[in-house]
Nucleic acid binder design. Structure first.
Length: 568
DNA sequence: TTAGGGTTAG
């Protein structure tokens, strides 16, 4: 739908004629979009002195905003379009987008003036509600009153397209703005485009666009560089990120704490500790103080490496530098203790969070539940799982997955399935991981027919089983002595657009060896090599084990030799 | 004296 609306909106800009649907277009709340109250006069035409004062500082929540709106509507003379728009933006900042749109609709019904900025804000609200299509429809109505969208209006729309995953369309619209000179993109628009492209994995396109931007008269600023640097770091291109960091400095743009945090995160992710140290030094030399984000990244990185003592040292540094840890910092520490199995310490941190004026999040509980489950202490995990609702938090897909997985690992299948039903009853959507956990449970208990039905059910609910899900079922079939069915399913993978990985080859090869089907093994090994899926140490191990089980030492020994030659 | 931008976690 939005493409048509967008095409129409863009065509209108190009031709400068009224949109075909502007007159009677009805917004989602069924209020006609247009009324005759478009405020076409500039504020100079209406002296501000004639308008009553409106106190926005008294607004603490959305109810206050609604009350003020009612007061403003009754005021005589009526407050200006600026004041009404200001109120709308206060509501938008509170993230009450639907409320802002209702106010907007009411303004139109009551004859309160709206202008280009008010309308752009309405577009923004639709976009933030993932309804960029309605945003484009509002765009179409701009021209009815001889008003033109500007760079901010288009920035809202491009951001809206990225939000709903319409990456190509966002890029297309941006290029159209450039090629048809519909507006002059500014730094903020570049940040939105570059960040959208980077986050969607189109990192090379983002880098090219940055190169283009560097050649314009309006030069990229620190935010623009930071967006691309962050994208590079998130796509394991830490060297490129470091290179870009040097380039921005050469061009006289100083990185800020956010830029450094992105690079530090990227370096921590790949364990480049020396570079992290150098960068921290560079930061301090440049008089950029680490913030709570920097510290949280470091705490998390140390904890993931099992270096909890070092993470605790970061906490001490935070105290010295007067940096207050936030819930993310504490969650990283909880996770660190859990990874080391130090559940007592992890729990102590959880219960100390409230003492520090913070509220534990669902992630705090999720980490602990995961830690207890990993240790097989499901009853303690369950106790915390139940505590979540008492604390006014909502269970999410991940906590359900963790708990179900924990129960199934302890063979508490009935409890696991009961929780799965409860999850759906609570309106928490199962994801691929949920289904994979349950599929594994079915296969481990040799409920193969149910596992097959489950695969079909997954497809029906729009969650396509991935290679891991198939590997679980194929493994279950092999372990249940149903090698033929397993091979059939394996052969169906290409038709499901799934590329077998080493793990799945190993499952089939191991079974074939146990059956003594050495010729079939040779065929699969050749196929594996051709597909770029190299045999690994597990491949050799399963083959050797298979042959030894058949007392075929003469087949096993040459494989041992080959395994050592290959260094697997 | 009305609008838009970047980083963290189970």
């Amino acid at each position: 739908m939005w493409q048509r609306a967008a095409a129409c909106g863009i065509a209108i800009i190009r031709k400068g004629i009224a949109p075909q649907f502007s007159g009677n277009f009805v917004l989602p709340n069924n209020a006609p979009f247009f009324s005759s109250n478009f405020h076409s006069c500039s504020h100079k035409d209406r002296p501000f002195s004639s308008k009553p004062r409106v106190d926005f500082s008294s607004i603490n929540d959305v109810e206050d905003a609604l009350c003020l709106f009612r007061d403003m509507v009754r005021m005589r003379p009526q407050p200006s379009v600026f004041q009404f728009t200001k109120l709308l933006t206060v509501v938008v900042k509170m993230k009450h987008y639907s409320v802002a749109l209702s106010l907007f609709a009411e303004m139109r019904q009551l004859g309160v003036p709206v202008d280009q900025i008010t309308m752009s804000n309405a577009i923004n609200c639709y976009c933030l509600l993932n309804r960029v299509d309605f945003g484009f429809a509002v765009l179409g109505t701009f021209f009815k009153r001889g008003c033109e969208p500007n760079v901010t209006t288009f920035t809202f729309l491009i951001k809206g397209l990225f939000l709903v995953g319409e990456i190509a369309e966002a890029e297309k619209l941006f290029k159209k703005l450039l090629s048809e000179k519909l507006c002059e993109p500014d730094e903020i628009m570049y940040v939105i485009v570059l960040n959208g492209l980077s986050k969607a994995g189109h990192i090379l396109a983002a880098r090219d666009l940055l190169g283009h931007f560097e050649n314009l008269s309006c030069k990229p600023n620190v935010h623009v560089y930071s967006a691309v640097i962050d994208g590079l770091c998130k796509h394991n291109m830490a060297d490129d990120a470091l290179h870009l960091l040097s380039r921005m400095i050469e061009k006289g743009i100083s990185p800020n704490v956010v830029t450094y945090n992105s690079v530090i995160q990227g370096l921590c992710d790949v364990g480049r500790w020396k570079d992290v140290k150098d960068l921290l030094k560079e930061m301090l030399d440049n008089k950029i103080s680490p913030d709570v984000w920097t510290c949280s990244i470091l705490v998390d990185a140390f904890c993931k490496e099992g270096m909890v003592e070092e993470a605790e040292n970061v906490f001490e540094i935070m105290v010295q530098r007067n940096i207050c840890p936030n819930i993310v910092t504490y969650n990283a520490l909880i996770d660190g203790y859990c990874l080391r199995g130090e559940m007592g310490k992890a729990k102590k941190v959880l219960y100390s969070i409230a003492d520090r004026g913070l509220t534990p999040s669902i992630i705090s509980y999720g980490s602990l539940i995961n830690g207890y489950c990993k240790q097989g202490r499901v009853d303690e995990a369950w106790h915390l799982f139940m505590e979540i609702s008492c604390k006014g938090l909502q269970h999410d897909t991940i906590t359900y997955n963790t708990m179900i997985h924990g129960l199934l690992c302890k063979d508490r299948f009935a409890d696991g399935w009961k929780l799965f039903n409860d999850m759906q009853a609570q309106g928490v959507t199962p994801n691929l991981q949920t289904y994979t956990i349950l599929l594994d449970g079915l296969c481990r208990t040799q409920q193969i027919a149910q596992a097959f039905s489950f695969l079909c059910m997954m497809e029906d609910t729009g969650v396509n089983p991935n290679i891991i899900a198939y590997a679980i079922v194929i493994d279950g079939l092999c372990k249940g002595g149903k090698l033929d069915i397993a091979r059939d399913l394996f052969n169906q993978l290409p038709s499901k657009r799934l590329q077998p990985d080493t793990k799945i080859y190993n499952i089939i090869i191991g079974s074939l060896c146990r059956e003594g089907l050495i010729e079939d093994v040779k065929v699969l090994l050749t196929e594996m090599e051709k597909s770029g899926c190299a045999p690994n140490s597990v491949t050799y191990r399963v083959m050797i084990q298979g042959f030894l089980k058949r007392n075929e030492l003469y087949n096993a020994i040459p494989l041992m030799e080959e395994m050592y030659t290959r260094g697997s």
